[in-house]
Design a protein around this nucleic acid. Structure first.
Length: 307
DNA sequence: GACAGCAATCCGGAGCTCGC
DNA sequence: GCGAGCTCCGGATTGCTGTC
């Protein structure tokens, strides 16, 4: 046990050598995240889930989510607001499962285990992994239940102009920006720099800064045209200066943040050894997941031996 | 003179056909 | 069934012209 936890006060241990520490789980939280490319779709879907599946908290249903027998007491549901986002939470025998819209870009489903005994689990810390699998099972069952949504009915607004071709003022088709391309991503990141907010920018200025990505100003104009056609950039009348519009700021921030932290997940960004290869080499992620599980098993086994 | 706009052209990928 | 070759379409580039 000492190899994992130590209680020291200066150089002296506060624990008598005749005593042992036993470790127990007070609360275990297991969450599953569904990440969305579009904040609008994510929000609309979550609103539909709140509306359609508010009765999940009924005793019989919630018992099925937790894979236990129905219990007439201890089942209740709450709706709350966190940072103006709704959160629905269902209680079952002192345990809970909640679902909320996190940052507008992902829906988090989270099982909280406070009373493991009622779920056939135990409190000693060596049951940590069992709690993990149990929590994942609860999350999956709730998500399976919520999967019964016709997504075509959710997105009732007009199509996102940044995702498909639009027509310019002469009815010519302008292709959508594609931030998977290094050149377009570089341009968008450059446009977000504060130095352009005061006086705007010229293509020549961008060409000097982005000389590694663009060979000439025509290439920059071509990419800027995609943003101009969508109202993300506006040209100042009679001048060769452009400015990023409010719409443009919102889209640029959302898209670049989404690409950095969601489309290229943090786990692949952390391990620098070829993050760009991971999409074509899924075995690397699987190996990583295997190592995590292996480590978790070793910790719980070690705890069991030393307890 | 510098820059933006526009049309022509180039290029590459997807889909289809045909022969082996 | 598979691969080579052809066609088409849409995105990207280039070069000329107009405007400030």
């Amino acid at each position: 046990m000492d190899q994992f936890f130590k209680f020291d006060k200066g150089t002296y241990s506060t624990r008598s050598k005749h005593l042992n520490h036993d470790w127990y789980l007070t609360q275990v939280e297991v969450c599953s995240n569904m990440i969305f490319k579009s904040a609008r779709f994510c929000t609309s879907l979550f609103e539909r889930l709140l509306d359609k599946f508010s009765r999940v908290g009924l005793p019989d249903t919630i018992a099925r989510i937790f894979s236990r027998r129905p219990c007439r007491t201890g089942s209740k549901s709450f709706w709350r607001l966190y940072d103006n986002n709704a959160c629905i939470k269902h209680w079952f025998r002192g345990n809970a499962i909640k679902q909320y819209n996190k940052t507008g870009y992902y829906i988090r489903t989270e099982t909280t285990i406070n009373n493991p005994k009622s779920l056939g689990l135990k409190k000693p810390v060596l049951f940590l992994q069992a709690c993990l699998w149990y929590g994942l099972g609860c999350n999956d069952r709730l998500l399976d239940c919520c999967a019964d949504v016709d997504t075509s009915t959710i997105y009732e607004g007009e199509a996102d102009p940044f995702d498909q071709p639009v027509l310019d003022h002469k009815d010519r088709k302008v292709t959508p920006p594609d931030l998977r391309k290094e050149r377009q991503l570089g341009l968008c990141e450059e446009l977000l720099k504060p130095k352009y907010t005061v006086n705007g920018f010229k293509t020549a200025e961008l060409q000097r800064t982005l000389s590694g990505l663009f060979r000439n100003s025509a290439q920059i104009r071509y990419e800027m045209k995609k943003l101009v056609a969508r109202g993300a950039i506006k040209k100042q009348k009679g001048k060769s200066f452009y400015r990023v519009t409010e719409t443009g700021w919102k889209w640029l921030w959302a898209s670049i943040t989404s690409k950095r932290y969601f489309k290229n997940p943090v786990i692949s960004a952390t391990f620098k050894a070829g993050p760009s290869n991971t999409p074509t080499q899924p075995y690397i992620l699987e190996e990583g997941l295997g190592l995590i599980n292996q480590g978790l098993s070793q910790i719980t086994q070690g705890l069991a031996v030393n307890m």
